[in-house]
């Protein structure tokens, strides 16, 4: 029996039209209309005023993404060199925190970082002075790294398992040292993993509102918090909320486009 490959994609295409394409058009529609439904650009003008919050979100998300990459990259490589059984166990351990509710995990960090929290109780217990941990940008970045690092490790790992041992041996036979192998062999071959991991961490981090709300204090009002205020605030401001979401979406799309550009060329190179 011949399986028509075209058909197999239909369920997802229907899903995507219903829950991605149509909502996208709705957001576009709301962003450029007022409460009565007539065309206006005033929502967009207002959304532009919120660029400080957007810049803050992008900076924190970028820092978190870089930290995730730095932490995850060596780990994913080491993991991909383990025996099959060990690899299975490791990937389960990475997924383990995700079995718990996202909100609960962030809430636990609050209890750890508080002024009278676990860390500071320990510090004062051994005679050190307490440090200010919660309600800082650092706490928000920590929350982002903690929550999203599995999304960096897993794509990196799945690309790195495909790097054959013989390729590394060949590199070493030809006289490549550690850094040379890393830069000329492993890095280009794992580029698709870096790109998808970066996207999978950056995109949710830039739009988060739970983490900043719980760990960020007064000075970390991110674009996600702002959109939440617009949709769930007093005025139920669909139009401005949509305009801000649209602005965020454009920024995320541009970032993703830049990264995808990287990935295309490297994939090309890897094939050559």
């Amino acid at each position: 029996m011949k399986l028509n490959a075209k058909w197999t994609s239909y369920p997802y295409i229907i899903w995507m039209i219903l829950f991605t394409i149509i909502p996208l058009f709705l957001i576009g529609y709301f962003a450029f209309t007022d409460a009565e439904g007539s065309f206006t650009v005033s929502n967009m003008e207002q959304a532009v005023k919120y660029i400080p919050a957007l810049v803050k979100s992008i900076s924190l998300a970028a820092i978190a993404t870089v930290l995730c990459l730095v932490l995850a990259y060596p780990f994913a490589f080491a993991m991909s060199r383990l025996s099959f059984e060990r690899q299975k166990m490791m990937s389960m351990l990475i997924m383990l925190p995700m079995w718990m509710n996202f909100l609960l995990r962030t809430y636990a960090w609050q209890a750890i970082l508080e002024d009278n929290g676990v860390v500071n109780t320990l510090l004062t217990g051994i005679g050190l002075s307490s440090v200010k941990l919660i309600n800082t940008s650092g706490a928000v970045v920590l929350g982002m790294v903690y929550n999203y690092i599995p999304f960096m490790i897993l794509p990196l790992y799945s690309v790195m398992t495909k790097i054959d041992k013989s390729v590394l041996e060949a590199a070493s036979d030809l006289g490549a040292g550690f850094f040379s192998t890393l830069y000329r062999v492993i890095l280009p071959l794992s580029m698709p993993g870096i790109v998808s991991g970066t996207t999978m961490v950056f995109v949710p981090a830039v739009s988060t509102f739970v983490i900043s709300g719980m760990l960020g204090g007064v000075n970390n009002y991110l674009i996600g918090d702002l959109i939440e205020t617009q949709f769930l605030g007093n005025s139920y401001d669909l139009n401005c909320g949509s305009a801000t979401s649209l602005l965020l979406m454009v920024v995320v799309l541009v970032t993703m486009a830049i990264f995808n550009h990287f990935s295309d060329e490297d994939a090309e190179e890897a094939l050559v």
Binding site: Q46, Y50, A53, Y221, T229, S235
Partner: peptide, 18 residues
């Protein structure tokens, strides 16, 4: 009124952004 609610929320976002 809708106008007052909107004003309040817009000002609140202004407060929060700083």
């Amino acid at each position: 009124s809708d106008e007052t609610n909107k004003l309040m929320d817009d000002l609140w976002i202004e407060v929060r952004i700083g």
